[in-house]
């Protein structure tokens, strides 16, 4: 089976769908001729023509706004926000328009649209290249939100997103583009070629939206994570020697509640980790649904480890990033609680 980086897997997902369906068009800032600043669309314009993959003006609301019009026409646009931090000008188009079109028109018009964006920190990007805004999207009815943690899922989730008849937000942890990252920034980067999830099948396959997966089985504690924090949580469990079960949510909305519920009822303990800021983050929603579904099985309070409630700093990146030490420490506290 071919081995791919997450970038190559994302590029391949585009290529598979563009070859299969003439209605798939791809555009964004630097996306066409150059192939994207992270190279996720490299070669697509050459292969599929300028009609199908092209450069857009630096205008996020225009990119998403035109894509909504294209989706209403019958195309399946896949647009890239260069960084998740740049999506805010497009917020009105995403929230008031893309997410609402099916509902408000009673199905007269639909919006099969994918908005991809690199998310998260770990690359010394400072406050405008490091944010994790997923909770802003999960709060909006009518949107689906996914966060892959590896090349296999990145391709399968993106294909599923392109085939979905509703708007899907795909947040791609940029620190994972070239290799898994467990939070240990002093260690040399491990390439995806050495990781089992760097094995990516050729051709079309999907990772269905709404399905999480257990990355590490365990009996004592359930860790709910997604994106980069899946790898951090796995490494933290090893380092503190706790038999933790690490769940990679993969899709935030719709959420795989049966998987979460079964695991927490089994372990009786739950830790939630995300890179995004703590307050009103998606972790708060997870705490609420776990408490609601599993309260009488819980042996300890549910804890969260998240980014501090500050803007994402530059120099202090590794004090901000919720690394193994904080995640491992929280695991111990949940076990003691």
């Amino acid at each position: 089976m071919p081995r791919m980086t997450m970038i190559e897997a994302i590029r391949d997902a585009h290529a598979v769908k563009m070859a299969e369906d003439d209605n798939v068009v791809v555009y964004g800032e630097d996306v066409g001729y150059f192939g994207g600043v992270f190279r996720c669309t490299a070669g697509l314009q050459e292969r599929f023509g300028k009609n199908r993959c092209f450069d857009a003006p630096i205008n996020e609301s225009g990119i998403v706004g035109t894509a909504i019009g294209m989706a209403a026409f019958g195309l399946r646009p896949v647009v890239e926000m260069q960084f998740a931090d740049y999506v805010y000008p497009a917020f009105d188009q995403i929230v008031s328009e893309a997410a609402r079109l099916r509902y408000r028109s009673a199905g007269d018009f639909i919006c099969p649209l994918v908005v991809r964006m690199p998310t998260g920190g770990g690359i010394f990007g400072g406050q405008t290249h490091s944010q994790s805004p997923e909770a802003l999207f999960t709060h909006v009815s009518g949107l689906k939100t996914v966060v892959p943690s590896n090349p296999y899922d990145a391709k399968g989730l993106l294909i599923a997103a392109i085939e979905d008849n509703d708007p899907v937000i795909v947040l791609e942890p940029k620190r994972l583009y070239n290799g898994p990252f467990d939070g240990d920034h002093d260690k040399p980067v491990t390439p995806w070629s050495k990781h089992p999830l760097g094995e990516v099948p050729e051709g079309r396959y999907t990772v269905p939206l709404g399905q999480g997966i257990i990355r590490r089985e365990g009996a004592d504690l359930t860790v709910l994570a997604y994106g980069t924090m899946v790898h951090v949580a796995e490494a933290a469990a090893e380092s503190v020697d706790i038999d933790a079960e690490v769940i990679d949510l993969r899709t935030l909305i719709p959420l795989d509640m049966p998987l979460i519920e079964a695991s927490v009822k089994k372990t009786g303990r739950c830790l939630i980790v995300h890179e995004a800021t703590l307050t009103s983050g998606f972790g708060a929603e997870l705490v609420a649904v776990v408490a609601d579904a599993c309260f009488y099985h819980l042996e300890a309070p549910i804890l969260r480890v998240a980014g501090w409630d500050t803007p994402y700093p530059h120099a202090q990146e590794w004090d901000y990033f919720p690394g193994q030490a904080r995640v491992g420490g929280a695991m111990k506290r949940v076990m003691e609680g």
Partner: peptide, 27 residues
Amino acid sequence: SSKAHGFFSISGNLATQFVQAVGWAMA
């Protein structure tokens, strides 16, 4: 809203649909 009559669903938010029309035309 009436696709059959060439009338896109009115949002109620202002101006948002101006750029969508351009996207529809691009499509």
